[in-house]
Amino acid sequence: MLRVLVRTGSEACRAVSTSTAVLSVHPVVKSEDLSAKEIWDRRSKLRVPKLQKDEQLSSKVYFAPEWDLEKKPNLDEGFVNPLKGYGMTPEKWEYYNKVVWPPNYIVPETGLPKPKEVFHCKESVHFSPKRMWAACQLVWKMNVDEAITQLDMQQLKACNLLMDTIKKAKSRAADEFHIEYPSQMYVADAFPVQSNIVKGARRHAHDNWNTIRYRYIHIFVRLEEGPAPQQKQRHPQKNGWDHMDEYYNYLRSRTVKYSI
C-alpha cells in the first residue's frame, strides 16, 4: 500500500520557522526529486568562505543530553587535564548519536531535510595510523556497498579492519537506528586517531638500545544517507575535455592589436 503525501505551503513555512535566525533561501523540496548533483551543489555553497562579521550563527534547535565536563577520561585525580582525551574520542563520537533533531526538520541553509547519519567507532586496534589513513582516503565519500567491495579487493590489513568497521556501522544503521535502506548511504567520514603507544626496545651494538613504538588507533566512521558526492575534493578535477575547451576559448578570445 502506497500513500501519496503532498507538502503544502503552510507546512513548509512551519518547518522553516523552527530556525528564526537564518531565513531559508531555497523553497522546500523533497530530497528524492532533486538529483545528486543539485543536492551537492546546494551543500557545497555552505563552504563558501565568509567574514566573521557577516556570519550568522544558527540557533540551537536540537536536543542533546548534558555533557559531563567534570568526568575525566582516565579517572585521574586532581583537576581536569585538557591534554588528556583531547581531539576525537569514542565517547565524543558516540555522543553525536544521541542528538535529537526537531520534527520535520529542514536545514535552513540548503532547504533539504536533515540526512540520517550513523556514527561508529572501532576502538583500540593495533595498527599504524598512517597506513590506516590511506585506506580511509580510499573509501572516503564513497557509497557503502562500493566501499566494502573496494576494501575487499585490497588484501591489506588496513582495508580488512576498515571493511569490518564499515560493515558493523551498516548493520548498526539497520538494526539500531532503523534506517530503511542502509545500502543508499555513503561514507561521509573515515579517519584514524592514535589512542595509545606501547614502548618496546631493541638491542643494538655497543650497549645501544632503541625504542620500538607499538601504536594503537581508534577508527572513526560516519555514514550518511543519500547519494555520494561525485568528487572527493572541493572542486571537480579538470579532465582533458575541460582543458581543450579552455584552450579553444583562449584561441577564440585573441584579438589583433591596433586593428582597423
Binding site: K122, S124, V125, V198, A201, R202, H204, Y216
Partner: peptide, 15 residues
Amino acid sequence: RKTLLIELPEDSARE
C-alpha cells in the same frame, strides 16, 4: 632475538 619481547595489549579487547 635482539628485540625485547613484551606482552602487548590485545586489539579491541573491550569489544
